[in-house]
Design a protein around this nucleic acid. Structure first.
Lengths: 235, 235
DNA sequence: ACCTGAACACCGTTCAAGT
DNA sequence: ACCTGAACACCGTTCAAGT
């Protein structure tokens, strides 16, 4: 008879390891996620982790998967495809937002993890419903999701220290570097320095980012339609 | 009399160091860029590099700056703002394309290096000419440039080994992982597997990516206009 | 001013061994 | 099956010293 899980003295499990790795990354940054540190947190030898992850890349993949698992996929409705797409992309961003320092790890996992695949499939569904060919839906969907990941990882101020003092210092230093520029040579950048360093409202930052993606999709679809129409007229 | 540069036996200079670091990254990837390896390439002790870069971060910044320095900023013309913007963004992508493995380093340098600032200022100029407020131009421009950087760093196939054999292996493995999916559960993803793994044409991939960004900008501008119009009507 | 040399703290990972 | 312990190759970086 094989030992049941209650009999084996399993002290570690991959889910909890990935969870505390994600925690570590959120607080101290991705470079702080180390096999050795993670082992220490679980009061175990570094080598013990290799029972559960084949190597560090595998651990980072688990972190990415954990973030994607937080996606709360909205149910299909009777709304227009582009309205539903906006809701879908917003749900995606919502899952990433708590983890700006490591959201980039999802890039390589969207087409592998189950929740990522579900998101990708649903995105393509809506794009095809809107009128894209399957191949165009793939390329457009891919870039849209990648752009939104970048929107989160580049959220101004997100990569600073968690420590509020060091954080203010970093922001002040950035502001100073822009303030030192010649307003004559860079009138617009210096005028918008505050916005560039840290947007007035984070919610607006994300709303505008998502709008930009959705508007791009609508616009490209219209252009492709024109091209087809023009091609038809040439006959 | 201070020694002229011909008298000092300077064996290293930051420009050449950054250049060979970029070369190294292009061929072997960013993780291969190491103070020690770079020193070895120049037949020098690792510590010698610290005369020219304050630390590794500084070296990576120099790589980013080197890429941005390749931007060939198009001259202003009498074309419409959005046509000129497309040309400008294309020039930006053109500078990044030779370096998909390290183009991400430019993210933190756009608002610091001179060519990056020139690009940012010109982008904002065109956006303001199009009708954006200065602050909106800052946010929209920022995300547009970030999206294009991501477009390059996620160019399918770009992060594989340079070795054509290993490269084919990696692509085949990815294809297999998508091919193993249930076409019943993921009909669109499996149907578009080839396109997702490696787009039919790289030039088309980039053209579509830039179109998406420009169309998004145009669309958001129109929406903002509507909002203003609606707000005016409410008076 | 520019480079060397030895040392330190910290990585990921292999291999052999314990229970 | 799961974990330990010692070791290896490789990092970035400090410090003191050479010319």
């Amino acid at each position: 008879m094989p030992p049941t899980s209650s009999q084996t003295a399993k002290r570690l499990d991959p889910d909890k390891l990935a969870a505390s790795a994600l925690e570590l990354a959120d607080v101290e940054g991705l470079e702080a996620v180390t096999i050795r540190k993670l082992a220490q947190r679980h009061e175990v030898t570094p080598m013990a982790l290799y029972r559960h992850f084949s190597d560090k890349e595998d651990l980072l993949a688990a972190i990415g998967d954990r973030i994607l698992a937080q996606i709360d996929l909205p149910k299909p409705t009777s709304e227009r495809w582009d309205v539903q797409l906006r809701t879908l992309l917003t749900a995606f961003v919502q899952a990433l937002r708590p983890h700006p320092k490591v959201a980039g790890l999802t890039l390589y996992r969207i087409l592998i993890s189950e929740p990522g695949l579900a998101l990708g499939e649903r995105t393509m569904e809506l794009l095809v419903e809107g009128g894209f060919s399957v191949d165009d839906a793939a390329e457009v969907g891919r870039q849209s999701l990648c752009s939104l990941i970048t929107l989160v990882t580049t959220e101004p101020g997100s990569n600073e220290d968690t420590d509020p003092i060091a954080r203010e210092d970093a922001l002040r230093a950035k502001r100073a570097s822009l303030a030192a520029l010649s307003p004559h040579r860079y009138p617009l950048i210096t005028a918008a320095a505050d916005t560039l360093i840290c947007p007035a409202s984070t919610d607006r930052y994300y709303a505008l980012g998502i709008d930009l993606v959705v508007a791009g999709i609508r616009g490209v679809l219209a252009d492709l339609g024109d091209t087809h129409a023009a091609a038809s007229q040439q006959k």
